[in-house]
Design a protein around this nucleic acid. Structure first.
Length: 561
RNA sequence: GGCCCCAUCGUCUAGUCAGGUCCAGGACACCAGGUUUUCAUCCUGGGAACAGGGGUUCGAAUCCCCUUGGGGUCACCA
């Protein structure tokens, strides 16, 4: 049973087959990206199949979201569900839950040939055996208890409707797996047991469905994550029993957290929990999440907040959630083309010290021989640097469009409170300091703050800018007020000229002496876009009001201590 | 624990398959300077790795073995 590593006569058909049990994980996204690239680079076809054989955990919503995420990444498929309705391709349906009769046909063949059998073990019996194996520190393998029931009886009991599963009768011999990236591996005989191929609820298991579908859909190349490597033996055996050709397998290295742990949705919960614990928080911040939910979560270390609550709580605590799923990266303001580029670099590289490229290049250049065998640790800092570079390379117009689209999706309230010109100015002045599309929404709350409620907490940089030096920033502020009142028009360029001249006279030409106190006065803190833009965004009236209140507030502070 | 796989800077990686041009290259991060009205950017420079031990060979990051370390898997989940 040779597994072909090269199939010159086969058209290239790859597939991505997510299980719609939650958001699309970045690891899954990378698998999809590589599958897509391989097909696109070889005039092949890319199939999307939804593996929803787990009735309890699958949802149509998750499948829709996965398709939306793939589309966002720029990955299109030739065959599979069509998000607009219906499906593309001739080998559908592409939801496994709709293919039950097909699986039954092939199951029947196995049953008839006695290559599979009905088994009536209860879940409790199996659990007990597993626990026993664990206690003895040996690997659990199904003991074929089901085969002790004579075949005729098995058939009769199944026909009578007794609950059962169907198991594959695994041949007792070693299995050689040939993998296009890992090479050859031999699993010794007995390593693969009589695994279940149809569950008690009548649905096929992953192993059975994947083998049948890959064969029927003509998928000649199976790419997936390394966690599936050992499963390949089961699939190879099933293909033989069913008389199917073996596809070429390639297993990609896993993508791990920076600390080497598995990247999982739990990490987000952990990040928030760690922050809550570290700050000793005992009740949720006002307007975040339900106090009952919060305390139940806090008191149970194993509990996980649902995603929306987590996002709300993280926002209230100003905690950055680690991005795990594609939609997390989207929400954080990463560019899809950058995410693809970076994801491709985790596990593959084109060589020649080249690391910036687009999906078209990836499609042209991707080859299995250059795929890494070792797990990669996901470095968000480097991703961020890539995202920054891409943003800096964008035209101001393109950046404006993309930030606006991002804002409409994730910060509609922010957008609604700004005038067009105000928003454009904010975006323009933020571009060269933006690492993500989301950053300017997070760091410019001063713009939305009510003038009458703005406060000036005296932090170290504030003290330095306002109270130190001779004259102090605070006194310079009082002097510059008249200038601001008279500058016409109240616009960035004019303000720059006027304040520049004023600084030459009053600050020995050192603009910083007045810029920083001004920034603090009008924003409440030491960080904002360039000062002239900051002033224009606010407008004269608000600038003066904030200035007056600041003078009042900080003069009192200065006198007090 | 059984079985399978893997191993180059802190991280992603080039170089490995066809041994010499590699006292190991790039990027991110880091450190030190510099530019800058804050922050961020930007510029210059720097430290930083072939896991260890045996072989094979004139010659090993590259081939072989062992040790160590890491990962995967052992579900009526995929």
């Amino acid at each position: 049973m040779p597994t072909p590593t090269d199939q010159p006569d086969h058209p290239v058909v790859t597939r991505f087959a997510p299980s719609p049990t939650g958001d699309l994980h970045v690891g899954g996204a990378r698998t999809a990206l590589f599958c897509w690239a391989y097909a696109r680079g070889r005039e092949g076809a890319f199939v999307l199949r939804i593996e929803d054989t787990d009735r309890k955990r699958s949802s149509a919503g998750a499948a829709r979201e996965a398709m939306r995420d793939l589309a966002w990444l720029g990955l299109d498929w030739d065959q599979g569900p069509d998000p607009a309705g219906g499906e593309r391709g001739d080998h559908g349906p592409y939801f496994q839950s709709e293919r039950l009769p097909i699986y039954e046909t092939h199951l029947e063949r196995l049953l008839e040939a006695d290559r599979a059998y009905h088994a009536f073990d209860t879940a409790e019996e199996l659990d007990a055996k597993r626990a026993a194996a664990r206690a003895q520190k040996v690997a659990y393998r199904y003991d074929r208890a089901g085969l002790e029931v004579p075949r005729a009886e098995r058939l009769a009991r199944a026909a009578a409707g007794e609950p059962h599963v169907i198991r594959f009768r695994t041949p007792d011999r070693p299995v050689v797996i040939t993998d296009a990236v890992l090479g050859e591996a031999t699993l010794p005989a007995g390593e693969v047991d009589d695994f279940i191929i149809r569950k008690a609820d009548g649905f096929p298991t992953y192993h059975f469905a994947v083998v049948v579908d890959d064969a029927l859909m003509g998928c000649s190349w199976v790419f997936r994550a390394q966690e599936h490597f050992n499963n390949t033996a089961k699939h190879l055996l099933l293909q033989e029993a069913l008389g199917f050709d073996h596809p070429t397998y390639a297993h990609f290295p896993l993508i791990m957290n920076p600390d080497g742990s598995k990247m999982s949705k739990r990490d987000k919960d952990k990040a928030v929990r760690a922050e809550v614990r570290q700050r000793g928080i005992e009740a949720p911040p006002p307007d975040s999440i339900d106090p009952g939910t919060f305390s139940a979560w806090l008191s149970d270390k194993k509990a996980q907040l649902d995603h929306d609550d987590l996002v709300r709580l993280a926002a209230a605590l100003d905690v950055q959630l680690p991005e795990i799923n594609v939609r997390d990266f989207r929400r954080s303001g990463y560019l899809p083309e950058v995410l693809c580029n970076f994801l491709a670099l985790n596990g593959w590289s084109p060589g020649d010290d080249l690391e910036k490229f687009d999906n078209a290049f990836l499609a042209r250049s991707f080859e299995l021989g250059r795929v890494q065998k070792t797990a990669a640790r996901f470095d968000r800092d480097k991703l961020l640097a890539f995202n920054l570079d891409a943003i800096q390379a964008m035209s101001p117009e393109a950046f404006l469009d993309r930030v606006r689209a991002h804002g409409e999706r994730y910060h509609p309230d922010f957008l609604a409170r700004l005038g067009d010109r105000q928003f454009e100015l904010l975006v323009e002045s933020s571009r060269e300091r933006s690492k993500t599309l989301d950053e300017l929404f997070r760091t410019n709350h001063w713009l939305l703050e009510d003038d009458e409620r703005l406060a000036w907490p005296v932090t170290k940089p504030v003290r330095k800018a306002m109270f130190k030096g001779e004259p102090t920033g605070l006194s310079l502020l009082a002097e510059v007020r008249a200038l601001l009142e008279g500058t016409e028009p109240f616009e960035s360029g004019h303000l720059e000229t006027a304040l520049g001249a004023w600084a030459a006279e009053h600050c020995e030409g050192n603009l910083g002496r007045i810029a920083q106190p001004l920034r603090i006065a009008v924003t409440g803190g030491p960080v904002s876009p360039p000062i002239f833009d900051t002033l224009e965004m606010l407008g004269r009236e608000r600038v003066l009001r904030r200035l007056d209140r600041c003078l009042e507030s900080l003069s009192a502070t200065e006198e007090a201590g």
